[in-house]
Design a protein around this nucleic acid. Structure first.
Length: 328
DNA sequence: AAGTATTACAACCGCACTCCC
DNA sequence: CGGGAGTGCGGTTGTAATACT
């Protein structure tokens, strides 16, 4: 007898989430916290399977998610880690706390794969020592590999870190001003946390609740995104341009609606200490160490930690450049 | 301007793993 | 210890948006 489906196939809605569903889900999680996904559809009245709810939360609604373009820095890190870990997107994502594994996976499949192919005109995709990305090694094996390869990882990542640190830091700094200031014009990479997603979503939704094109179930996620940005209409009714999409988004919109402080990653530099309990809860639920640490320093910390585990000679191996060293 | 191809990404599916009874 | 439930993860698909002809 096979395993029963995670939910009844009948009466379960599929496809893009509507703003109403998002709001239901977010408010439920706000109240009860994430987890026990099985109970979510029942308790919220959502006609979604528990899995779908979890996915929606972890991939889109969860606080601290950075969306939009990947920076060169992130690209390099992903490439390095993919080389080391294979398609272990969750593992890779854990070193890019603001990105979801799904996001990274998509980005790899749509961008990086092609990019690498351009450079690797050779036969099989990479295979440093015979392991192909399409044939990931067993877990125990790759962990052992990872340990033995830590030196190489360190080297590769250090290269990426030292090259990109400055630009990355300035970018992070910019993103930290997100709520209080307009997003910098140079920001081709959009930082749209779930807070903004929902806030914008609500803004548009409440402004035009009768607009069937925006509120009915046919509304797609993409249209949601547009509502939150490209296609959004300012309070004066002037359509905003795509490039303006991240400007002046008040985090307070969401806060006031749900009654808790913004758990947006843009406030992450203030750390969970200053967060509301709810926000902390969300942060805790998020990926390990998510949000509160610079992804970059997280990575470096990882390197150091790994190094510490590897043995004392590891650290002596590291010759960080000045800018990197100053981080600590 | 219209049709077609390509790209991007949200969401789904199914297997694997962990935990609890 | 075994089995079931819940969850995590990676691969894949569907479709809207965009680019190209």
């Amino acid at each position: 007898m096979g395993r029963p489906p995670c939910c009844d196939k009948e009466g379960v809605k599929k496809g893009p989430w509507t703003p109403e569903e998002d709001i239901l889900l977010v408010s439920y999680i706000h109240e009860h916290g994430p987890g026990n996904w099985r109970a979510v559809p029942t308790n919220t009245g959502l006609l979604r399977c528990s899995k779908s709810c979890r996915l929606r939360w972890t991939n889109y609604l969860r606080p601290g998610i950075k969306r939009g373009n990947f920076t060169d820095q992130e690209e390099k890190i992903i490439i390095h880690l993919q080389t080391l870990l294979g398609n272990r997107w969750a593992a890779i994502a854990s070193y890019l706390p603001q990105r979801t594994d799904n996001d990274i996976k998509n980005y790899w499949n749509t961008h990086l794969k092609k990019k690498l192919k351009k450079f690797q005109t050779g036969p099989e995709e990479h295979t440093r020592d015979g392991f192909s990305a399409s044939q990931p090694m067993p877990r125990g094996q790759w962990e052992r590999r990872l340990q033995t390869d830590i030196h190489m990882a360190k080297q590769a990542l250090r290269d990426a870190l030292s090259q990109e640190k400055q630009s990355y830091l300035s970018e992070l700094k910019s993103s930290n001003d997100y709520c209080s200031n307009a997003i910098p014009a140079q920001s081709s990479s959009t930082y749209a946390s779930s807070t903004e997603n929902i806030a914008r979503l609500l803004k548009g939704w409440m402004r035009n609740p009768q607009n069937p094109s925006q509120t009915n179930s046919a509304m797609t996620q993409n249209s949601l995104n547009r509502m939150s940005g490209t296609d959004s209409v300012s309070s004066e009714g002037t359509p905003s341009k795509a490039n303006d999409k991240d400007q002046h988004i008040p985090c307070e919109a969401f806060d006031s609606l749900f009654g808790f402080e913004s758990f947006d990653s843009s406030h992450s530099d203030t750390s969970t200490q200053s967060m509301s309990p709810e926000a902390s809860l969300f942060q805790d639920e998020s990926k390990p160490d998510s949000g509160d640490l610079l992804p970059l320093s997280l990575l470096e910390k990882w390197l150091f930690d790994e190094g510490a585990n590897q043995g004392k000679d590891f650290l002596s191996d590291i010759t960080l450049d000045d800018s990197t060293a100053n981080l600590f």
